[in-house]
Simulated assay, not measured.
Amino acid sequence: MFLSNRLWRNSLIVSLVLLVSNQMAIKTLSESKPNQPRDMISGRYTLKYQNVHNELNVLLLPNQQVKIDLLALLKTGSDLRNGVVQAQLPLKKNSLLYQEGACKLAFKFTNKAVVVTETNVEECGFGAFVTAQGTYVKRSNIPKFAEEPARIKP
């Protein structure tokens, strides 16, 4: 009988310790930055096909802000034309919207890429026939920012 009571008491103590540990873990998880999403968008993305060589660098900042640095390059023969966008934009549901006058660029982030669509690209101040539109593939989780946008060798 004595052994049974001791075993019962030890089991109760172990159960209480496990319950308290569980509650502490749940509390810790619930207190961890609920408004800060896991950073799945920061990085360096590229879009390359034929004579188009674009690079997009993205950095998630506090308060749902995102810093972008876009360089769009078009090589035609010995001629090299470009377009540059540098901005800080609010992130809304894995999307960004850049608007400068009539120029609009929409960025939609997926698992390992970002899809860029344009409206009125001729108003963006890019070189003739230069486009930012397309699906950029994530190459690194670490963006490359410099005073001037990174130049890509075509």
Rank of each mutant, 00 (worst) to 15 (best):
128 A>F: 13
56 L>K: 04
91 L>P: 03
88 Q>F: 07
148 E>N: 08
76 T>P: 07
82 N>L: 07
70 L>G: 00
140 S>D: 14
19 L>G: 08
144 K>H: 12
138 K>H: 02
135 T>G: 08
133 Q>E: 15
55 E>V: 13
83 G>D: 03
59 L>D: 13
12 L>M: 10
44 R>N: 13
107 F>H: 05
53 H>P: 11
152 I>Y: 02
66 V>F: 00
49 Y>I: 00
152 I>S: 08
125 G>N: 02
139 R>H: 11
125 G>Q: 01
33 K>D: 08
76 T>M: 12
135 T>W: 01
109 F>I: 04
120 N>R: 12
75 K>Q: 15
80 L>F: 11
122 E>K: 09
10 N>Y: 09
106 A>Y: 07
64 Q>S: 05
58 V>A: 05
20 V>W: 04
116 V>Q: 04
54 N>Q: 00
59 L>M: 06
51 N>E: 10
50 Q>T: 14
113 A>T: 09
13 I>M: 06
22 N>Q: 08
65 Q>K: 03
100 E>P: 07
72 A>L: 03
72 A>D: 01
41 I>F: 07
41 I>L: 13
141 N>H: 07
77 G>S: 08
29 L>K: 11
45 Y>V: 02
42 S>C: 03
53 H>Y: 14
70 L>P: 02
96 L>H: 03
140 S>E: 13
93 K>G: 03
35 N>I: 14
124 C>W: 06
3 L>K: 14
145 F>V: 00
86 Q>N: 10
106 A>V: 12
90 P>Q: 05
89 L>G: 02
101 G>T: 03
123 E>G: 06
48 K>H: 15
149 P>L: 01
54 N>I: 03
135 T>Q: 13
12 L>A: 06
61 L>T: 02
152 I>M: 09
130 V>T: 01
152 I>H: 04
105 L>V: 08
140 S>R: 08
143 P>T: 00
44 R>I: 07
151 R>M: 13
152 I>W: 10
23 Q>I: 14
21 S>C: 15
94 N>M: 13
45 Y>W: 02
67 K>Y: 04
115 V>K: 06
47 L>I: 02
114 V>L: 00
110 T>G: 15
99 Q>K: 08
6 R>K: 11
38 R>D: 10
73 L>A: 13
90 P>F: 01
125 G>Y: 02
104 K>N: 03
110 T>F: 06
147 E>W: 09
132 A>Q: 07
123 E>Y: 11
127 G>Q: 06
86 Q>L: 11
50 Q>P: 10
28 T>N: 12
46 T>Q: 12
50 Q>E: 15
123 E>H: 06
